[in-house]
Design a protein around this nucleic acid. Structure first.
Lengths: 340, 340
DNA sequence: ATGAAAGCGCTAACAG
DNA sequence: CTGTTAGCGCTTTCAT
């Protein structure tokens, strides 16, 4: 048995041609005699050859790989990410586009200072050609680090502090207005909100849209409680809201997971959803369907957005090292189910 | 501005030493004069040098990276994976160990034939030193492919067909017996099960343990319905069970997600949990806590198992190419909450 | 259309 | 303790 994996050299010898020819066949470069191609393919199959990525990457200066970084913080971060279908949609969307471009996606978690710098090292070492990053935390230092390392980067959602970087985002303000409009239309008179962390651009925008729409309808200073995107935090926020004003008859919640939490608490407090309190979520994640009752929610076209993100990155990688940044804003859509 | 990233050569020049010396400093090899070390470190910082992974990997024949492959099938596979906290626990556990060994985890999805062969290519190209694989599907061809590519591999759970590969697993049979024992002890007389896919070893073992324990207590041929680990399938399986025998007063469900589905259906049918029907889940995932009522469940020490898996792999990578396979079996534990 | 040869950036003997 | 040197496996001009 051979010690090492077969190399181009081995295949060349087996086929009786030069390394260069085998390389051409492997890479599908034309200008190779069909007969010889056949010969080489045979030799490849016989030897069980697989190109060595490191060697190739060393000369092409390409890894054919992009990082998909989920950046946040706290204990059990990975566990939390895996409890939220939202990320599954992002991964699905990005995968679709990357597979087509024959780019390998590599999922990385940056949940701590140490992990973050490991991620930065990883990309700086040329292991990937670029990074797609999803921050769950406001003021995430990662985009800045990546940017100053001159790594092609595309963010999901606008960075909390302005910087020259590409990103895709949802028109969050419009989403909130959609939700409030629906609540108003079904006759709610006392509307509250469980908002997202305010250090996140999306969190601020959704709250701003909520307040604007409500102000236009004449309700000022509505009850608001902040959650952290988790189910638990939704339960607690709803409890606070009820304590503040027991007469609430409509709630706009900044994501589906917290909306599910709100529904749970409401039921425990003897309130019927939507008869006593109508609830509108955000994201249209799979939870919206499995929740009891199924959630009326603001649909974010996550898969499309993630796919666009991948496309933006692929373009940036292909182009000059410093391609100019692109921004893509998507429009939300209201999906009416039973909770409101 | 420089065209390319700085290389060892650049740093060496800047520090007035040879490439080898810089390399030694970078890799923490001793035998380097402290003063020179300082000098070199300075030069590294000034130039913003980061070692090129491809070049290093080419000579060391190490990628310092392992793949964590989640293998299954079907549309929206990634989405389903991200809806199940179980995987989050695996990732968390594996990450802990890998980070300590300065190994980079790369999460890969093998949800289709095409994706699977991409994964195999990826590992065969030497992009990773080994693979940790979690199959959600019986008869997964991936372990076999990896094995015949002579890639160090460790599986989560026993492969459906015997093969010389390392794996960690739970004593699933014991877990089922724990659950049945509890149901029996609380007085259930008519116990059913929502089992997992029977092409999975874990599915077969849990069902076997269930039947054994019940047979010993004198209940033969209990009602059984198969689910697919998803919430939806749990709902449907529970409906079938009830249709078959309305007198069921206890259910052993093969995972928490399906148990949640069962609880939902039970409630809709006007049955109280646990008063009318007691439900025991499996895994002790985060769902067990957030479910209403919180689930009594069989705890699987997933994080520990995943960590052990990573350790097994790291050892295999360090050792000879063909280190002998190791098998580690963990014991389950019953966690009593409110559902039974 | 094919081959020869020059590196890509790094590590690891081997000298000194 | 430090420098010199020989590749690792591959792509890519440049000849032929």
């Amino acid at each position: 048995m051979k010690r090492h994996a077969p190399t181009l050299e081995d295949v060349a010898r087996a086929a009786g041609v030069s390394r260069a020819t085998v390389s051409r066949v492997v890479n599908g470069v034309r200008n190779v005699d069909p007969d010889i191609q056949e010969l080489v393919r045979h030799a490849i199959a016989r030897t069980g050859y697989a190109p060595n990525r490191a060697a190739r990457s060393l000369v092409t200066r390409r890894a054919e790989t992009v990082a998909l970084v989920i950046s946040g913080a706290g204990d059990g971060f990975a566990a939390r990410v895996f409890a939220d279908p939202f990320f599954g949609r992002i991964v699905t969307g990005a995968l679709g586009h990357l597979r087509a471009r024959a780019m390998h996606p590599v999922l990385l978690f940056a949940e701590s200072e140490a992990a973050r710098s490991q991620v930065v090292d990883y990309v700086r070492q040329g292991s990937v050609d670029g990074a797609l990053v999803v921050s769950v935390q406001g003021d995430d230092p990662l985009p800045g680090l990546l940017l100053s390392s001159r790594i092609p980067t595309v963010l999901f959602a606008r960075p909390s502090r302005p910087m020259p970087v590409s990103y895709v985002d949802l028109d969050n303000r419009a989403g909130a207005r959609l939700a409030v409009g629906h609540l108003l239309a079904r006759g709610c008179r006392r509307i509250a909100s469980i908002c997202a962390p305010q250090d996140l651009s999306a969190g601020r925008e959704r709250l701003a849209g909520f307040r604007e729409a409500l102000a236009e309808a004449g309700q000022v200073d509505p009850p608001v409680a902040e959650g952290a995107f988790t189910l638990d935090s939704g339960v607690r926020a709803m409890a606070r809201l009820l304590a503040e004003d027991a007469g609430i008859d409509g709630v706009f919640v900044a994501n589906d997971l917290m909306a599910q939490g709100a529904c749970q608490l409401l039921r425990e407090k003897g309130k019927r959803v939507p008869e006593d309190v109508a609830v509108v979520g955000f994201d249209d994640s799979s939870i919206a369907v499995t929740c009891r009752p199924p959630l009326t929610t603001v649909r974010q076209p996550v898969e499309e957005m993630a796919s666009a993100m991948a496309k933006l990155l692929a373009d940036a990688v292909q182009a000059a090292p410093a391609a100019d940044s692109g921004v893509l804003i998507f429009q939300p859509e209201l999906v009416v189910r039973e909770s409101a």
